[in-house]
Structures are given as C-alpha cells and as structure tokens.
Amino acid sequence: MSAEKALPLDLENGPTDEELVASTLKGDLGAYDELIRRFQGRLYGVIYHLTSNHEDTNDLLMEVFDKAYRSLPTFRGQSSFYTWIYRIAINRSFNFLDKRKRRQGAMSLNELDEEGLPKLDLADLSPQNNPNKSIMLNELQNKLNESMLKLSNEHRTVVTLFDIQGLAHSEIAKVMGCTEGTVRSRLHYAHKQLQKSLGIYLKR
C-alpha cells in the first residue's frame, strides 16, 4: 500500500540537501536559506496537521529551523537531512501538544484557526454542486478535523505523513524511529478510527 501521489523529496536539479548542509557549515549561509525554502512547505504541513492551528504552526516552524541551524554542527549525516529535520519538527510538535494538553485539556474545534487562509471548499470539488451537498461536505470537513484531533499524536503523525504528505512507509519509519511494521499497524488503526467516525459520511 503506497500513497497514490508521493511528494518528491528532492528537487530534480541543483545541489542535494546534504551538499547544502555542507555548504552551510562551511559558511555559505545562503545554502541554509535554500534548505528552508525546500522544506518550509512540507514541514508546515506536518506541524499544522498535528496542531490544527496556523499561528502555532508558524511559531513552531521558526523554532524548528532555528533549532536545526544551531544543531547543524552535530548533524553527522547518518540519516538524510530531511529525516533529521522531520524528526525535529515532530518532536517539537509533540512537546508543544503535551504542554497544550496539560494547560487547556483537549483542544476544541472552536480553537481551530481558519482565518486568512484559503478555505478548503469540498463543495467546489464536488461534481454536483447542490446546497444540501455543500452543507454536508462542510460538515464532513469539520468532522474530519475533529476526528484527526481525537487520534493520538503518533497515529495522527502517521496519517499526516502517509495520507497527506505522501511519504512511503519506509520513510515514515525512519522519521519516527520505528519499524515499518509499526507504521503499517498505526496506519491501519488510525484509518479504522477515522473510518468509524466518518463512515456515515463516506458511505453516501
């Protein structure tokens, strides 16, 4: 089972991530800018789908790139740069989520930040654009976000990396520091949970 359309992990042209890391360490700081540009979108996606809040995502993304830059001299190249920085992003997000949970309890849907951003309008994607269906699809979108938030951090991460970001099982295993079997197992469980919550909508 693989994602239908995997996102490319390396740009087809130009220096590799590891070459950019080496250049950064040698003092070519424009190279780090290039690394940021390569990863900002994907890391934004990971953090956002874990936190469900755009403002928090922005703050965390800054922290992640800052932390990565400061830790770059300790990057040994034993794993690829993208695996390494994904780990940083996920660990930071988990720490943030733990703190938020302790302070506020479970996040309510009312706290989801949807302002100022292109809204996902499932109705536009529907072949039949009738009002009832539109209402139902918006409800489905809310329900989907709600169901995602009910998953544990690990299960939500696996769903995010596999279904939304399009990473392969093996890549997810490296990022999360577990076996592919664990990834598949978590994914299966998460799908079952989401299916259970959303089944009534998906059958229509």
């Binding site: 900002q40 979108g41 996902l120 989907l144 989401l194």
Partner: peptide
C-alpha cells in the same frame, strides 16, 4: 480508499505562496 481521498484534500489547507515567499 474514500477516506484516503478525503485526507488528501487536507493538502489544500496551507497558506498561500506569499506566506512562503516571505518566510525566509
């Protein structure tokens, strides 16, 4: 499969290109 199609739509929940242009 239907669930996965729905999840893939979440890729659209992202800031516009202006945000990423200014991010660095």
């Amino acid at each position: 499969s239907e669930l996965q199609k729905l999840l893939r739509l979440k890729r659209l929940e992202t800031p516009g290109p202006e945000y990423f242009d200014r991010f660095v």
